[in-house]
Structure formats: C-alpha cells, structure tokens
Computed example of a mutant assay.
Amino acid sequence: MRLRTCYTRHWWTWRRIATKKRVIRDEPSASTAFLELGRALVHLKNYEKALPVLRQAVEEMPESGIAHYELGLAMVKMGQWESALPEFQAAVVVTPASAQLHFYLGAVFARLKRVPEAAKEFETSLQQDPDHYQANLVYGHMLVLEGEPAAALPKLRKAAKLQPDSGEPHRYLADAYAQLGQEGIAQRERLLAERLGPPGRPEKLAPVFASETP
C-alpha cells in the first residue's frame, strides 16, 4: 500500500511536470508555469533541473516572494548557501510581513556563521509570530552554541511548551543548563529528551530545511 501511494504521488507530480512543460513551450511568457514546474522538480529532488527553471521564474516575476524563496530553497538543498542568501533576502524584501520568511533568512545567516544578522531576523520573526516553534528552537540553539545560555533559555522553554511531545528543545535546554553549571536540571532535561525522541547532536545547529541532517 505504501509503495502504491508513493507511486501515485510521483505519477501526479510527473504528470504536472509534463503539463507545465507544454504550457511553457506553447506560452513562453506563462510566468507561473515556470514556478510550478520548478516546484515540482524540487519535490522530485531534481534540484539541478529545478534551478534554471526557478531562475526563469524569478526573472519573470521579480516581485514574487515565493519565487525567490523556491529558488533559494533549491540552492539550499544543493548546499549552495551563499548563493541562496540573496534569494531569501529578496523574498523578505517583497514579503516583509512573513514571519516564516524572516525565519528562513535567519537560518541561512546562521548557517553562514553570520550570527548578528541571524539574530536580527529571528527577532523579527518572533515579533511577528511569538509562537513560531522553529524560530524559538533554532534561535535558542544558536544562542547556546554562541555561549549565551541565559539568553537561550526563554526561547527553548517556549519551544518546549509549543511542542511538548518533541525531545529536541529539551536536548538544547540540557546543554544550556550545563553551560550555566546547573547539572541537576541539565540531567533532567537529558532524560526527558531521551524519553521523547531519538538522540540528537547538539554541537550542530538544529536542522531547518527538509534536506538537512542534524
């Protein structure tokens, strides 16, 4: 049943790709067709083919935040973080009220070790949506990695409250409390993290995009 479901999902994706290719062939100025084709190729993890299509989508629709985001996402999934940065920056410029886009931009800055810029974007994301789980989690974890455990605690506690069934916030809380010398609380958080989820690798920044591994 799982194989049939997977095949059906991919069959519809392939059919959508064929349809979008026909639209582009027959109407080269059909801007949204480039975007939809690129997204479909990303869905199939065919990132190399997706890149030129999504670049064309951005060229056709420079004011589309989603087009810039999708191009940046394809670049991230190919490990091209430096190239992805201006695309996420452009997405935020044209869609400044999106907490999610500010979070993604912050995550790219964090991956590039540009901590002040990352912190600014995470702060903006949380101003727009204080209950953004990923922003609280990744920002808090970044602060732990930067040796600022006291500043990290409120973010990580909020993340733990937002997703009480996830062990990830508790892993990073354990590291924060250990840095603060509160080993008893740190051990309690470690045990809770083990009970709630698989072991993590807190020495690396929490993964953000689906293609990343912790």
Results as ranks from 00 to 15, higher is better:
191 L>H: 11
62 P>Y: 01
213 T>Q: 15
69 Y>D: 04
169 P>L: 09
188 R>L: 08
134 Q>I: 00
156 L>C: 06
173 L>D: 00
71 L>K: 04
46 N>C: 12
37 L>M: 13
84 A>T: 08
150 A>L: 11
212 E>A: 13
82 E>Q: 11
57 A>D: 00
128 Q>M: 14
124 T>M: 08
134 Q>D: 10
207 P>Q: 13
124 T>H: 10
195 R>Q: 14
92 V>M: 10
193 A>G: 08
139 Y>F: 15
160 A>T: 00
123 E>F: 03
32 T>Y: 11
177 Y>C: 00
41 L>T: 02
156 L>I: 00
125 S>L: 04
152 A>Q: 01
77 K>M: 06
7 Y>A: 11
144 V>E: 00
60 E>S: 12
126 L>F: 09
2 R>F: 03
93 V>Y: 07
55 R>G: 02
102 H>D: 07
74 A>V: 06
38 G>A: 09
37 L>H: 10
117 E>G: 05
89 Q>F: 05
52 P>L: 08
82 E>R: 12
147 G>F: 02
101 L>P: 00
87 E>G: 05
44 L>Q: 11
25 R>Y: 04
33 A>E: 01
176 A>N: 07
214 P>M: 15
44 L>V: 13
108 V>A: 07
191 L>K: 15
189 E>V: 03
13 T>N: 12
168 E>D: 08
107 A>S: 15
158 K>Y: 00
132 H>Y: 07
119 A>C: 09
61 M>T: 10
21 K>V: 02
186 A>Q: 07
119 A>I: 09
156 L>H: 02
64 S>W: 06
13 T>R: 13
75 M>F: 07
101 L>C: 02
139 Y>R: 09
213 T>L: 15
105 L>M: 12
10 H>I: 12
181 G>N: 11
70 E>D: 13
145 L>Q: 07
13 T>I: 12
102 H>A: 05
73 L>R: 15
20 K>E: 01
72 G>D: 01
129 D>N: 13
149 P>T: 06
184 G>W: 11
164 P>H: 06
17 I>R: 06
174 A>G: 05
214 P>Y: 13
105 L>N: 12
176 A>C: 06
127 Q>P: 04
210 A>D: 14
107 A>G: 12
64 S>L: 09
184 G>Y: 05
128 Q>Y: 03
22 R>A: 08
17 I>T: 03
3 L>T: 12
35 L>K: 14
10 H>M: 15
90 A>C: 07
140 G>Y: 04
45 K>H: 15
106 G>H: 01
130 P>I: 05
70 E>I: 00
54 L>D: 03
83 S>E: 10
37 L>S: 01
77 K>T: 04
142 M>L: 13
44 L>C: 13
118 A>M: 03
26 D>N: 13
79 G>Q: 10
202 P>L: 01
122 F>M: 12
193 A>S: 13
68 H>A: 03
97 A>V: 05
71 L>H: 03
103 F>V: 10
170 H>Y: 09
36 E>N: 14
152 A>D: 00
160 A>D: 00
156 L>F: 01
27 E>H: 15
73 L>E: 04
170 H>R: 07
62 P>H: 09
140 G>P: 08
154 P>A: 09
113 K>Q: 11
21 K>E: 07
202 P>R: 05
73 L>S: 04
79 G>V: 07
83 S>I: 02
66 I>L: 13
184 G>K: 15
68 H>M: 08
20 K>Y: 09
70 E>Q: 10
125 S>K: 07
160 A>N: 04
27 E>Y: 14
130 P>V: 04
